[in-house]
């Protein structure tokens, strides 16, 4: 029972911190909106998207995934801030199991990421994507799957990082490749084999594909394959994160 309340309060803390920084809520929507409207509009006439839809419609689920990806990773990496500002000690010295700290942090980060994703979802009418209540519910489910997997990855990275200095490296060598290789911005059906291979190694590919399937009915892999890969990746990340937190001093 103690672990349940620890998870709850860690989750609530992330939500309160999210709400505290209202300016950031909107500021962090700037980049995805640029991608969606500038890149989407500019490339729409020249890029043929599958299923005969406009390119800007095609990338809409990809841009939402991008929002979820970046928010998740930032939330998880905030553990490094907590370490630098001393707050992590308050958590680590409390009588709670290490796995509940990992789960609480991941749930908090995921909830914040899904909220950001939902704000992007509000732009659907502007892009011309038709959403029903069922599609919205399914989209939230997929966004949460992506968010939970990526916060898991972020916690694994954060457990090894002692200071924020290395964060730009993580963005350049982990986050940007995950984003660019995920097929968020391009159709997957006409790629050269080396690129096709790389996209298939990227776990986010399966999340983006699932979200695109749910929202637009266009997908490259089956729903089941997407789900299994995402859940498998999430499980591995959490196992590693819990081991790291148990070993850490």
């Amino acid at each position: 029972m103690g672990d349940f309340w620890a998870i709850y309060i860690l989750w609530l803390r992330d939500l309160k911190r999210y709400w505290y920084d209202k300016a950031r809520i909107f500021a962090s929507l700037g980049q995805p909106i640029l991608f969606l409207f500038v890149l989407g509009t500019a490339l729409s006439p020249s890029v043929a998207a599958p299923g005969g839809i406009k390119f800007s419609e095609f990338i809409f689920p990809g841009i939402i995934s991008m929002t979820v990806l970046f928010t998740s990773i930032f939330s998880a990496i905030s553990i490094v801030w907590d370490r630098e500002f001393g707050f992590l000690k308050e958590v680590l010295v409390a009588p709670v199991s290490r796995w509940s700290i990992v789960i609480g942090k991941a749930l908090g980060g995921s909830t914040v990421a899904v909220l950001q994703g939902c704000l992007m979802l509000l732009l659907a009418p502007l892009v011309g994507v038709q959403l029903s209540l069922l599609i919205v519910i399914q989209s939230i489910f997929v966004m949460f799957l992506i968010a939970f997997a990526i916060t898991g990855l972020g916690i694994v990275i954060a457990a090894r990082m002692k200071e924020m200095e290395g964060f730009q490296m993580i963005v350049n060598f982990v986050i940007m490749p995950i984003f660019f290789l995920s097929g968020a911005l391009f159709p997957m059906d006409r790629l050269p084999s080396w690129l096709a291979l790389l996209t298939r190694i990227d776990p986010l590919t399966y999340g983006v594909d699932m979200l695109r399937g749910v929202m637009l009915g266009i997908h490259s892999f089956s729903y089941i394959l997407n789900l299994v890969v995402m859940l498998g990746f999430t499980f591995i990340m959490f196992a590693v994160a819990v081991i790291e937190f148990n070993l850490a001093e």
Binding site: K16, Y20, D21, G86, E90, V93
Partner: peptide, 14 residues
């Protein structure tokens, strides 16, 4: 145990 650390350990955004 209760601990008051040498360095601050509060969340200043709460």
């Amino acid at each position: 145990i209760g601990i008051i650390f040498q360095d601050p350990s509060l969340d200043d955004r709460l």
